[in-house]
Design a protein around this nucleic acid. Structure first.
Length: 561
RNA sequence: GGAUCUGUAGCUCAGCUUGGAUAGAGCACCAGCCUUCUAUAUUAUGAGGAGACAGCUGGGGGUCGGGGGUUCAAAUCCCCCCAGAUCCGCCA
């Protein structure tokens, strides 16, 4: 990075532009033969009124470069290209990584406080594959934000009341014969939801609505059943959260807050921000978003009412600078309305809310539907992947100890990596077989390359003060080191744009650079001791960056596989 | 009908915010590349095991959905059209 800074400073003197403006102009050439950093001169030609080629040539002759860090400059086409002094670049990059270790790429604490809400499930059925995408994003985005110095609060909302909850309850009441769960308790509850849906009729629907009224009136029998079944579901959720590595700083319950949004709407109505329609409901006419009911004619609240209150509650609890909600793209419209409402009410956090929307996770067979029971259950899927990993390990006759524990880690790595490697907002088709393959752009591929690196480090420990970096001259060594240096820009970009896929994408490139190095440059059997140590320092640097990265993705590493 | 998103290699996707050098990966396909031990009458061949643990190289394959526009320059910006997904509920 200091190389780039140096170029920026030199150029800003010659071009009479701000450093940031220069920085934005600079790019990385598509081919290393074209240099390490390049300045396209097309835009400059607009203001300087000269042929871009001429500008590049003039700059080249004017610049007083320090040969110590920039080996040479070349004009190719209308580009002015800078070539780093490799020796200097290598030693400064590796020294930095080996010194900073796990802090490499991380920034010191700032004052930014960010609340991130996920996965906010309904408590009438177990977590499914969609929730896993939600949770993978939630955890990795949280960690990425923390890596850049922000303080992050993870919060979860249990949607634990409403007609959908009553449906599971009705089915249990009718056909459950008061049984206790004989399986994972959230699955037990979910079975009754599916049962209800399969037998759904207008009468049953009415019964569910009637039960909701009883619940809201505080009917004891209904409340007891609700408490019992909800505690089963939540207990099951907690097991899954633990297995998947999700933790929350605070959990909200819809049942406790669903009435409280009312006041906010009524206040807004008094201020004349909202209208009443002919049925007495309070509505708002949002330009471009249509008319939206905020409070029913009978005075009861709806989804948007509660979400408005929750937004305010989160602000009161955490005084955040930024609030992120992770939910499926189906809800894009809902959150647009919510944020518009927050603006209309002029809440102090207006403009600081962000919906991180993710696309649906489809199966090769099509969309999952929980009411039809065609959902991919989260626990079952992890079990299945774990089993597949186990078979693979046994097939390869490796890791005879702890096969189960290793298989579980591989399964989770496969899953998380697959769910994070795509841009969040697109729909994806989940392919279990592809996700767990040991080849290709997969979690196991990354884990495996880390294992390889670690096996070398078990036999050789580089010590910083004895390394002769000048011995590192092969193409594979240099390109791996350049790739390691890119981590700084990647972690920043990935965090800033809330896009773990940028990091994942980079890791595949990095791992592939490492594999090339591994193939071509012997470490343990290197010609002499100095080269051995120098190369081991690259391996160590790789180990550091990959460890950090996997951790940022919420992926646990393995020692062997 | 309206809104949002998506369309890039046979398949799955990056790249689009901020327009720049031959449009990149992975999978699949084709052609290749280590050392050593064991089995085989021998050669061709090649099965199984081991290694710093399952690696690598090259190749073919593209109307960047279609059309128009802006620009010195468009996958990227603007407009129109086509196809798919989602939403448009006093459900959550």
């Amino acid at each position: 990075m200091e190389f780039k800074e140096e170029i920026v400073k030199l150029l800003s003197k010659e071009l009479n532009l701000k450093e940031q403006e220069i920085k934005d102009l600079l790019e990385t050439p598509p081919d290393p033969k074209l240099g390490d950093i390049s300045l396209p001169c097309f835009k400059l030609s607009n203001t300087l009124k000269k042929d871009p080629k001429v500008i590049a040539l003039e700059l080249k002759s004017k610049l007083k470069i320090n040969k110590d860090s920039i080996k040479e400059t070349k004009v190719i086409g209308s580009y002015l290209n800078f070539y780093f002094n490799n020796e200097k670049f290598i030693s400064s990059t590796l020294t930095k990584i080996l010194r900073e270790k796990g802090r490499y790429g991380f920034k010191p604490k700032n004052k930014e406080k960010i609340v991130i809400e996920f996965p906010s499930p309904n408590t009438n059925k177990p977590l499914h594959l969609g929730h896993l995408r939600n949770m993978s994003l939630g955890e990795s985005v949280s960690r990425l934000l923390e890596s850049q110095g922000n303080t992050v609060f993870r919060v979860n909302l249990n949607n634990d009341r409403g007609v959908h909850i009553c449906k599971s309850m009705i089915a249990y009441k009718k056909w459950g014969s008061n049984r206790l769960p004989d399986k994972k308790p959230d699955h037990f509850v979910g079975d009754f939801y599916v049962m209800f849906s399969k037998k759904e009729s207008p009468d049953l629907e009415l019964e569910a609505q009637e039960m909701l009224r009883k619940w809201e009136k505080g009917d004891k029998e209904t409340l007891n059943l609700w408490k019992k079944m909800n505690s089963w579901t939540l207990q099951g959720f907690n097991e899954t959260y633990k297995r998947f590595g999700s933790k929350f700083d605070k959990t909200y319950y819809e049942s406790k807050i669903y009435k409280k949004g009312k006041v906010l709407i009524l206040e807004g109505f008094k201020k004349g921000l909202f209208q009443k329609d002919e049925k007495g409901a309070i509505i708002i006419d949002l330009i471009g978003l249509g008319k939206k009911v905020l409070l029913r004619g009978d005075g009861t609240s709806i989804y948007i009412t509660q979400d408005l209150y929750l937004a305010k509650l989160k602000y009161e609890d955490f005084k955040f600078n930024k609030s992120i909600i992770i939910s499926a793209s189906e809800q894009n419209y809902h959150f647009k309305v919510l944020f518009k409402l927050i603006e209309t009410l002029k809440f102090p956090f207006a403009g600081s809310c962000f919906h991180l929307s993710y696309g649906m996770v489809l199966l090769p067979e099509g969309r999952m539907k929980s009411r039809e029971g065609t959902v991919i259950d989260a626990d079952d899927l992890i079990d299945e992947l774990s089993e597949m990993a186990k078979k693979e390990i046994i097939l390869r006759q490796k890791a005879t100890k702890n096969v189960g524990a290793i298989a579980e880690k591989i399964a989770l790595a496969s899953l998380k990596c697959y769910l994070l490697k795509f841009t969040a907002h697109i729909d994806i088709v989940f392919n279990p077989k592809e996700s767990i393959s040991f080849e290709g752009e997969t979690g196991p591929y990354l884990l495996y390359s880390l294992v390889r690196a670690n096996k070398i480090l078990e036999k050789l420990t580089p010590s910083l003060n004895k390394i002769n970096f000048n011995l590192l001259i092969t193409q594979q060594e240099i390109s791996l080191i350049k790739s390691l240096a890119e981590f700084l820009g990647i972690i920043e970009k990935s965090s800033k744009s809330l896009s773990p896929h940028i990091l994942v994408d980079y890791l595949f490139k990095l791992a592939s650079a490492f594999n090339l190095f591994y193939e071509n440059c012997q470490v343990i059997n290197a010609e002499n001791k100095d080269l051995k140590l120098a190369r081991a320092s690259i391996v160590k640097a790789y180990n550091i960056v990959l460890n950090s990265s996997l951790s940022l993705l919420g992926i646990d590493i393995v020692k062997e596989m």
